[in-house]
Design a protein around this nucleic acid. Structure first.
Lengths: 188, 188
DNA sequence: CTTTTGTAAGTAAATATTCACATACATGCA
DNA sequence: TGCATGTATGTGAATATTTACTTACAAAAG
């Protein structure tokens, strides 16, 4: 699974075939089928790992005793750092198109993104009740905008051939984002 | 090219092969090569059409004598309507992952998205100078957020199997978006 | 009679998956 | 300790299918 993630990170989803994977691992293709009943199962196992890793990271941040503004920043930071370290994660999470014909994988990606979105929505709800964020925010909408911004950032990053630092740019964007959603009169 | 777009709309990018296309058009595969030297050329020709169509639509809106708030709404409306009518356009524009290994196509997609982004950035700049939008907006950042929101919306729509109306939801989102960027004291 | 457009039948390479067979290793039993 | 047995893991070769693309030849059209 690690080697598969590496292939995707380096050469994209299309490059992940049972042949290239077996070559990279150093076994024959048949050996792979001792551990995964199909290529789809392999991909779904990887996605499940990403699911666990991402959600545990987010829920850890979520449980902290911090302002919601700080939580949000930390989540964005973590996520972009993850993408920087292992671009395959972004490749997989942003590849609905690729798995259009594969129902199970599509559903899995959907539930991952959905779960993340709900976590973030919760932060916006709390921050709104808190008085940290403006009262006219729609938590659901703003959480989707937040994720959309991250996605757009990652897309630009990929299309630029990873020429600039993703987490650093993320920070800049986060401040722009905060600028428009934060309640200025808020005092801790 | 029309038939190709239809295949992508109905069954996704993976379903577009020279074989399926020739069957749909009603000719042999060889005949396709009388008109397109390669599959990549076919895709790039389609992308170029989308480029022209989209940018001409946007620049038409841009040239109107309207508040920038209205321009922005019209552009979002047009774009989502386009995606609704021909989902292939969204499939193609949001498939960087798919074309990761194909440099020319990647560049083309990049330049399309970039051009659109710049158009929108201009609207934000004008609206800011105008007093329509808040003065603390970063036009570049906010335009990417705007596009990211559209993209997220389309992604959710696709993952939901097109079960809800994209332009209608877009309208709702646009109002949420406006809520946070609009200068409330602005009078035409 | 030359150019365009088509066909029919091929190509080689790549794809995921399967098969019969081999090896390694741990466990249980004499 | 020595041997048998079962299970996990590997090999190597083959499978059928699909892929983009090509080629030799024919009709059609200006």
């Amino acid at each position: 699974m690690q080697e598969a993630v590496e292939i995707i990170s380096e050469k994209g989803l299309n490059a992940l075939t049972m042949s290239t994977l077996s070559a990279k691992v150093g076994v024959t293709e048949g050996a792979l089928y001792r551990h995964f009943s199909s290529k789809n199962e392999l991909i779904m196992d990887i996605l499940n790992d990403i699911f666990l890793e991402t959600t545990s990271q987010i829920s850890e941040v979520n449980s902290r005793k911090q302002p919601n503004v700080a939580k949000l920043q930390k989540i964005m930071e973590n996520q972009l750092f993850l993408f920087k370290q292992r671009p395959a994660i972004a490749n997989l999470l942003f590849a609905e198109e690729y798995f259009l014909t594969n129902h199970d994988i599509k559903i899995l990606i959907y539930s991952i993104i959905n779960t993340i979105q709900l976590y973030i929505q919760e932060i916006f709800e709390n921050g709104k009740n808190n008085g940290e964020f403006k009262q006219n925010l729609n938590p659901r909408h703003i959480s989707l905008m937040f994720l959309g911004t991250i996605r757009m950032l990652v897309m630009n990053w990929k299309l630029s051939d990873y020429q600039w630092d993703l987490p650093a740019q993320g920070k800049v964007f986060y401040h722009s984002f905060l600028e428009i959603i934060e309640e200025k009169n808020f005092n801790q």
